[in-house]
C-alpha cells in the first residue's frame, strides 16, 4: 500500500519519462543488443504498462457512475450537461477494455490509438481547469483522492500519450494475442 501511495503525478511523470528514455535507448543500441529484440521488448513493456495504467484508472469509476458523473460535472466543464450521465457510464468501460486489449495484445494497435486519444482529451480537460483556476481533484485514478490537479497532472498525461504513441507506431510486439507482428499486415 505504501508503494501505491507513492504513485502521485510527479512520480508517474518521472516513471513514464524513464520508460520513454528506455525505449529511445533501445532504438540507439544503448541498452540492448541486438537492436531489434531490445526495441520490441521495450515497446512490449510500454504496451503492457499503458494497459495497466488505463485499466487501473478505470476500476474505481466502474462501480460508481454516480460519483464519477458528479466529478465530471464539478470539475470538467468540457462535457455538455446532457451528456454527463452517458459519459460517466461509458468512459470507464472504454478505459477498462482498452487497457485489457493493451495488456493482452488483442487489437493492441487500435487500443493504443484510443489510449493516445484519451490522454489528449484528459490533458486538454485538466489544462482548461487549471487555466480557469478550478480547484478540483483530478479523479484520474481514485475519485476520493485528496491530491489536487496540478501542471504535473498535465505533464503525466502528456508523457502517457508519448508512451502510447510509441506503442502505436511500433511495428512489432511480443506476447500479443494478435498475429499482427508482421508490419505488412497493418498499414
Amino acid at each position: 500500500m505504501r508503494i501505491l501511495e507513492l504513485l502521485n503525478d510527479k512520480t508517474l511523470s518521472v516513471f513514464s519519462f524513464l520508460f520513454i528514455l528506455l525505449c529511445c535507448g533501445s532504438k540507439v543500441r544503448i541498452f540492448s543488443s541486438p537492436r531489434v529484440e531490445g526495441e520490441i521488448a521495450t515497446t512490449t513493456l510500454l504496451r503492457i504498462v499503458c494497459g495497466f495504467i488505463l485499466a487501473g484508472a478505470s476500476l474505481d469509476k466502474l462501480g460508481d457512475p454516480t460519483a464519477f458523473s458528479i466529478l465530471i460535472k464539478e470539475c470538467y466543464g468540457i462535457v455538455p450537461l446532457p451528456l454527463i450521465s452517458s459519459t460517466a457510464v461509458v468512459i470507464p468501460w472504454f478505459e477498462f477494455f482498452t487497457g485489457l486489449c493493451l495488456i493482452s495484445g488483442f487489437r493492441w494497435r487500435g487500443a493504443s490509438l484510443i489510449f493516445c486519444a484519451l490522454m489528449i482529451i484528459y490533458s486538454f480537460a485538466i489544462t482548461r481547469d487549471l487555466l480557469k483556476g478550478i480547484d478540483c481533484n483530478c479523479g484520474c485514478f481514485k475519485m476520493d483522492s485528496e491530491e489536487k490537479m496540478t501542471w504535473w497532472s498535465v505533464a503525466r498525461d502528456m508523457l502517457f500519450f508519448a508512451m502510447g504513441f510509441v506503442v502505436l507506431v511500433s511495428p512489432h510486439t511480443f506476447f500479443s494475442l494478435d498475429r499482427s507482428n508482421n508490419p505488412k499486415s497493418l498499414s
Binding site: 461509458v90 507506431v169 511495428p171
Partner: peptide
C-alpha cells in the same frame, strides 16, 4: 524488418479502434 522503424497507423488501426469503442459502448450501456 528493422528498417521499418515505425508504422503509420492505417485504416485497419482506425477500424480496430472503432470496433473496440463500439463494443465498450454497448457493453457499458
Amino acid at each position: 524488418s528493422a528498417k521499418l522503424a515505425f508504422v503509420v497507423p492505417g485504416k485497419e488501426v482506425f477500424l480496430q479502434a472503432w470496433n473496440l469503442l463500439a463494443f465498450s459502448f454497448i457493453f457499458a450501456i
